[in-house]
Design a protein around this nucleic acid. Sequence first.
RNA 1: GGGGCCGUCGUCUAGCAUGGAUUAGGAUACAUGCCUGGGGCGCAUGCGAUCCUGGGUUCAAAUCCCAGCGGCCCCA
Length: 480
Amino acid sequence: MSDTGVTVKKSEDFSEWYTEVILKSELADYAPVKGCMIIREDAYAMWEKIQEIFNKKIRATGHRNVYFPMFIPEGFLKKESEHFAGFVPEVAWITQGGDTPLEEKLAVRPTSETIMYATFAKWIRSWRDLPVKINQWCNIVRWETKATKLFLRTREFLWQEGHTAHATSEEAEKEVMDILQEYKDVMESYLAIPVLIGVKSDSEKFAGAHYTTALEAMMPDGKALQMGTSHNLGQNFAHVFDIKFIGEDEKEHYVWQTSWGITTRLIGAVVMVHGDDKGLVLPPKVAPVQVVIVPIPYKGADSTAITAKAKETAAKLKAKNLSVVVDDREEYTPGWKFNQWELKGVPVRIEIGPRDLKQQQVTVARRDTYQKTTVKEDEAADAVEKLLEEIQSNLYNRAKKALDEKITPVQNYSEFADALKEKGGFIKASWCGNPECESKIKDETGATIRVLPFQQESIAANCVYCGQQAKKTVYFARSY
RNA sequence: GGGGCCGUCGUCUAGCAUGGAUUAGGAUACAUGCCUGGGGCGCAUGCGAUCCUGGGUUCAAAUCCCAGCGGCCCCA
């Protein structure tokens, strides 16, 4: 028995399944340094797709890409004390260059607010210089000491960080929400992962932010995953870094700022949410290979005709801008190839054998449902294109259903505990707004407030923990 | 933050309890040749191991002890 396939069932040992799928589908590999990973071809290709999608969105709204250095002088980080306190436990420091100790140690960026904003102070003079809307794609380092997990928590990861400065609070506020919506679209329309959006509680907000908005998804094991954040920084950093401009009113003002990011963690979410016992199941819109064609050459059959037909079909699909691979390797049997491409999550497989040739058809198999049908040869390209759309929406609908099933409204703390114990997921509950209740709940159950949804609806009059007058309806969950 | 498990050819592993004799064995992968082909084909031959690293115990260590490195899981 071969062990090249996935040996663990997703429903039986989720963690093990996750690791195994990633390694065997060759998305990633471990690096020699603890908590670091190698992002392999297919995963990187997905990251590039995400970059393409998001770049297009932010360019359309006037943002431009830049690159700042990865070394940040300690003094910069220390300027905003809350920010520094939030990040210092996991900053990697450079203290020596060659043989020479550095006079001031350098942080390997855990995020770039400080180095960017020191520069903003130089760039911004007048209201005419605003808004500043920049973004960078880069790596960052957060020296995790706790458990690391492929894609979800590694010491180094890739992300994009957008940073903006505006003349007014309203404008910054709008930016935060616009970006949040763009993120939501990336996740739902492209990654096929539904998310809950809202504001973070103070204890969970970004260190140094005025407030943080976030997008939260639900994983099949009942744990929430933060998919992205968009922060309203208010004027905190502006004051610290002295980012001022002369307004139209001829007076001096501090800028209003935002920052926002998504990371390679999204790839881990795709694996978790859509994958199955055979391996990855990739949403067509971000799949590096959308269609694989496997010729079935029988002994005695006209294998040149079969291969020719496979290539011809591939050409038709490519003409529709689809990414297609013809797997004409002779050293593997068709059955072996089916399994391998399923492991890699390719959404659609086309089989072309003597039978198809004779009947001028192709056999089409979809990854999400394993359904196999035959399609007339000249209709194949259109049919596949349509099928890919169908798979994309099927994956989203499946995930949406799973999310909805994992949201439990509760009236009191015993219901809260039961729901969390039984199925995990999001617990929708009323909260008085006191951080102490939040913190006690965390200590007792491991669940934290993931978001305070924008659309508030009252589900109970009293706080789920202390019984005092409730102020907010929030989603709790255990999280990654 | 706390607890537990693990590390042997590229990969999965046997051997470890009770130290010595398996030449560290097998499967898979890889290479070559044949045979096959609509769900991980078959046969033959071949290649492939610092038993994670360092130290200790011992006449003798993959096996026991300690430390380090790396991985996994669970709990809060």
